[in-house]
Design a protein around this nucleic acid. Structure first.
Lengths: 229, 229
DNA sequence: TTTAATGGTGTAATTTTCACACCTTATATT
DNA sequence: AATATAAGGTGTGAAAATTACACCATTAAA
């Protein structure tokens, strides 16, 4: 191959915003860095892209190496390219996000030595993060929150079987406001992608709620235009 | 600075999707390449980012050098990172877009020798473009079209004074469907950011239409939440 | 004066959104 | 067994937004 690319001291990286939902709180997955710079700081799971892998592939690999999570349906949300965002050189980073089920995941265990551990932290209680990761988080969260107004995206955050109250709690956590119970239920059910189960909630000390499942088939049919973009 | 970045043969670039509107047609700005690879092909205006400039700064500079257009309010829409998208090495490119007034622009004149000229082409009649630019165009156009459903973004595409019919024609060109005249007018006027002028259209051989101006102040007030994200 | 072309306007039906309160059911406690 | 606790579950009316729909007015050119 001819060498015509500019000879830069630069690289690109991926940073991942992985949202989870647990105990009524929206959480995000962070790693404890085990490498300079920002050794011992909390950071978004992120690392350099290799030369022979696409951004999407890199996002999958990097998330796996740093947290043990695999094959999440991650999507790009923004690319960050300020000149001095990385102390050791020019690094442009592509932000990816996914929304997942916390409890559906086995133990989080970093494979790579660059992360000491991976932990969930409430989005309402985040410390200052390494690099410009606090800003990456803010930007990504804003984008995802807005997206929720146009299309329901949150089913991957819940257990497979869930109650309408759980679903509402999730929406409230993301949008950061109270919703009306009757109107919320009416609207969600009207979409037609919730499948009512015979089964009921168990182990609660009050009236057990009906459980629902998310019907991906119908969801995809309804929102296919949004999904292709 | 310590050298710790991976020593890759790689670079990042910017590609710009500049939309214009003229004679009832939505157009896009292309350059005729004057450099290998893809010499003589049509391409999106795009080039490499320098090491000491941010992505946003690079987008401004590159567009200026290739087309003579300056200081457009460009925004990122997606980053493309397939391994073999560039024949000469690993190049990740960040897509930016803007919507502008074709006639408000002085003559388009590339400053850089990399482009022979810059031309407007109808989006409905695009040839195969250099690199993966055809795909970049498709993806960007889809994203922008969808965005139009949530917020009016198109005033920069029209002359300063415009008729409601022109505005409707623009919406129809972007959304690629017919709209109802009365409903469209009612809705647009209800936003409150169109200022009716006393002046009328001139030089038409039929009843002259009222002219309107876009009130940026009011627009910003109404859509500020969308603009900060 | 006629024609061609676009400008400009209103209403009723439908759908969507929003605000709002009470009885029911399951369990735990006494 | 009775009661207390905690959440489950349900409907209606008002207001707002969306949709469908057709005809006369105005201007300049022929």
């Amino acid at each position: 191959m001819e060498e015509i690319l500019p000879a830069f001291d630069s690289a690109f990286s991926i940073d991942c915003l992985i949202f989870g939902f647990d105990a009524g709180e929206l959480k995000i997955l962070l790693i404890e860095r085990n490498e300079e710079p920002f050794k011992d700081w909390l950071a978004l799971p992120g690392y350099f892209v290799k030369q022979d892998e696409s951004l999407d592939d890199a996002a999958d690999r990097i998330l796996y190496e740093l947290t043990g999570l695999r094959d999440l349906p991650m999507k790009q949300f923004h690319t960050f390219g300020e000149v001095n965002r990385h102390p050791q050189g020019r690094v442009v980073t592509v932000g990816y996000y996914a929304l997942i089920r916390i409890n559906g995941q086995k133990e989080l265990r970093p494979i790579s030595p660059y992360a000491r551990k991976a932990i969930w932290r409430s989005v309402n209680d985040l410390p200052k993060l390494a690099f410009d990761h606090s800003e990456i988080f803010s930007k990504g969260f804003r984008i995802i929150r807005k997206r929720l107004n146009y299309q329901p995206i949150s089913f991957d955050l819940l257990p497979e079987k869930f109650t309408l109250t759980q679903l509402q709690g999730l929406y409230e956590a993301i949008l950061n406001k109270k919703l009306d119970k009757r109107n919320f239920r009416k609207k969600m059910l009207s979409y037609g992608f919730l499948k009512e189960l015979v089964e009921k909630q168990k182990g609660v000390s009050y009236r057990a709620a009906k459980l629902y499942k998310f019907d991906r088939r119908k969801y995809a049919k309804i929102f296919q235009s949004e999904m292709t973009a």
